[in-house]
Amino acid sequence: MNTSDLIEQIANTTRRPKTEVKDILDAALDAIVDAAKKDEDVTLTGFGKFSVRHLAARKERNPATGESIEIAASRKLAFTAGKGVKNALVLPKTPAKRAAAAKKAPARKRS
Rank of each mutant, 00 (worst) to 15 (best):
L55P: 02
L25C: 01
S51Y: 11
A64H: 09
I24R: 00
F79T: 06
T45F: 11
A31W: 03
P92A: 10
G48C: 07
T65Q: 06
R98N: 12
D23T: 06
A107F: 04
K109T: 08
K59L: 04
E60A: 14
F47V: 09
P17S: 02
T80G: 11
A81T: 13
R108K: 14
S4C: 05
A72R: 04
T45H: 11
R108C: 05
A102S: 09
T19Q: 06
R53N: 13
A88Q: 15
A35W: 01
D30V: 01
N62T: 07
E20M: 00
D26Q: 03
G66R: 10
K22R: 08
A31P: 02
L55A: 13
A56D: 14
A36Q: 01
T14W: 02
L77Q: 06
D30Q: 03
V33L: 09
A101T: 11
A27T: 01
I71S: 02
E60Q: 10
V90W: 08
P106L: 12
N87K: 14
A105K: 13
R110G: 08
E8T: 06
R110P: 03
D26K: 05
N87D: 15
F79Q: 03
V21M: 00
K18R: 08
N12Q: 04
S51A: 12
R98P: 01
A81Y: 09
R15M: 01
P106T: 09
L55W: 12
A36R: 01
A57C: 06
D30P: 00
P92D: 05
L77R: 07
K38C: 04
E40Q: 08
T94D: 15
A107D: 05
F50A: 03
P95C: 13
A105T: 12
